[in-house]
C-alpha cells in the first residue's frame, strides 16, 4: 500500500497534477481574453445574429436575452455559467447549439489525429533508432535529407503532393471524404473505423482505412521527420554512454541494445516534442482537412471564422485548448512512467 501512496505522492510532487490544474486555469484566462476581444470588436452580435432586416425591437429583446446591455464582466459571468452547463451559445452558421456542432464534427478529426499519432510514433521510433544507432550510414544520410524536406514543407503542401501523386496520377488512394460513396456505417462513436468494426462491417473498415492513409501521412510526415531527428541525436549520444557500452561489452546483440537499452533513455527527450506535435494536430488538421474535404472540425471551425460566428469561434478555441491541454497532461504522465527518475525524484 505504501508504494502506491508513494506513486500518488510523487505524481503530485512531480508537477504533472499541478501543471494540469495550471493549464486549465490558463484556458479559463484564454476564454476571458477571447471573450473580451469578441465583445469589444465593432459590430453588434445581436444584429449580426438576426440579420440586417430584423426589426429593431426584436434585436433589442435578443440583446437583453443575451445580457448584451450589461457590463462586460456580467456578460462574462453569464457566459461562464452557461459554459459549465455545456452551453456555448447558438452558432450563427448552423443555428444550433455550438456544442452540438462540435460533437458532430469532432470525431472525424479525432479519428484522423489517432491515426496520425500511430503513424508518427511508429515512424519516429523506427527511423530515429535505425539512423541514430549507425550515425553516418546511408540511412542516416537519407534521414537527414528527409528531415530537412520535412521541416520545410508544411502539412498542406504534403497533402497536395500526396493527393496529386497517389490519387490523381497513380490512383491508388481516394482523394477526398471518409468513405466511398455507397458505403455507410451507423454512427456509434463517430470514429468510422471503430464503428465499422463494431458492426462487423469489414469492407467499410478497410475502406475507411484506405481513406485515412493520405491525410494521415500528410499530417505525420513533417512532424515525424523532426521527431526522428531529435530521437536520432539523443540516440547518438546514448550509444556512446558507458551504460550502453557496458552492455555491448557483455555481448548483448546490437538490436536489443539499440531498440531497448539505448532507445528508452533517448525516447524520454523525444516524448515532449512528440506530445506537443500530437496536441497541435487539432490545429494542423485544419489545413489538411480542407484539402481532403474531411468532414472534421475544420469544416465547422473555418466556416465559423469566415462568417465571424463568435460563439462558434470561442467554442472551437476552447475545444482545441481542452484537447491540447489534455494531450499535454497525458504526455507528462507517460513521461513519468518511462523515466523512473521523474517518478521517484532523483537525489
Amino acid at each position: 500500500m505504501k508504494s502506491r501512496f508513494n506513486v500518488l505522492k510523487s505524481v503530485y510532487e512531480n508537477t504533472v497534477f499541478r501543471r494540469a490544474v495550471l493549464s486549465l486555469l490558463s484556458l479559463l484566462g484564454l476564454s476571458l481574453i477571447i471573450f473580451t476581444l469578441a465583445r469589444i470588436v465593432p459590430g453588434d452580435p445581436a444584429r449580426m445574429a438576426l440579420g440586417p432586416r430584423a426589426p429593431e425591437e426584436i434585436v433589442q429583446k435578443y440583446r437583453e436575452m443575451l445580457h448584451l446591455n450589461e457590463p462586460i464582466y456580467v456578460q462574462y459571468y453569464y457566459w461562464l455559467t452557461n459554459l459549465f452547463q455545456g452551453k456555448l451559445g447558438i452558432s450563427l452558421t448552423s443555428f444550433r447549439e455550438v456544442s452540438v456542432d462540435i460533437a458532430e464534427f469532432l470525431p472525424a478529426t479525432l479519428e484522423l489525429m489517432l491515426f496520425v499519432a500511430i503513424i508518427q510514433i511508429a515512424g519516429t521510433l523506427i527511423l530515429g533508432t535505425l539512423s541514430g544507432s549507425k550515425p553516418g550510414s546511408i540511412l542516416d544520410g537519407a534521414l537527414r535529407v528527409f528531415t530537412y524536406v520535412g521541416i520545410c514543407v508544411p502539412a498542406f503542401v504534403w497533402g497536395l503532393i500526396l493527393q496529386f501523386i497517389f490519387s490523381y496520377v497513380v490512383g491508388v488512394f481516394p482523394a477526398t471524404e471518409r468513405l466511398s460513396p455507397g458505403i455507410t456505417v451507423p454512427r456509434i462513436t463517430g470514429l468510422v473505423t471503430v464503428d465499422a468494426l463494431a458492426t462487423g462491417n469489414f469492407r467499410a473498415f478497410v475502406d475507411a482505412l484506405w481513406h485515412l492513409i493520405l491525410p494521415s501521412l500528410a499530417l505525420a510526415l513533417g512532424a515525424m521527420a523532426q521527431e526522428a531527428r531529435i530521437l536520432r541525436s539523443a540516440m547518438v549520444e546514448n550509444i556512446n554512454k558507458d551504460y550502453v557500452l557496458t552492455l555491448l561489452s557483455h555481448g548483448i546483440p546490437g538490436y536489443r541494445i539499440y531498440f531497448k537499452y539505448a532507445l528508452k533513455p533517448s525516447v524520454a527527450s523525444t516524448i515532449p516534442v512528440i506530445g506537443l506535435d500530437i496536441a497541435s494536430l487539432i490545429a494542423n488538421a485544419f489545413m489538411v482537412e480542407v484539402i481532403f474535404n474531411w468532414p472534421g472540425i475544420s469544416k465547422f471551425g473555418i466556416t465559423a471564422m469566415l462568417k465571424k460566428d463568435l460563439n462558434g469561434i470561442v467554442g472551437v478555441v476552447l475545444m482545441a485548448g481542452l484537447i491540447y491541454t489534455v494531450t499535454n497532461v497525458i504526455v507528462d504522465l507517460i513521461l513519468t512512467i518511462i523515466d523512473p527518475r521523474l517518478r521517484y525524484g532523483e537525489k
Binding site: 490558463s26 484566462g29 476581444l37 469561434i313 472551437v316 491540447y324
Partner: peptide, 23 residues
C-alpha cells in the same frame, strides 16, 4: 509568465486563426 501561459494553452495556429477571424 502566467500571462504567457494563457497564450500557450491552445495550439498557436488556432490562436492566430481566431484572432484573424475576430478582427
Amino acid at each position: 509568465m502566467r500571462f504567457a501561459d494563457v497564450f500557450v494553452s491552445i495550439p498557436p495556429l488556432i490562436l492566430a486563426l481566431s484572432i484573424c477571424a475576430i478582427l
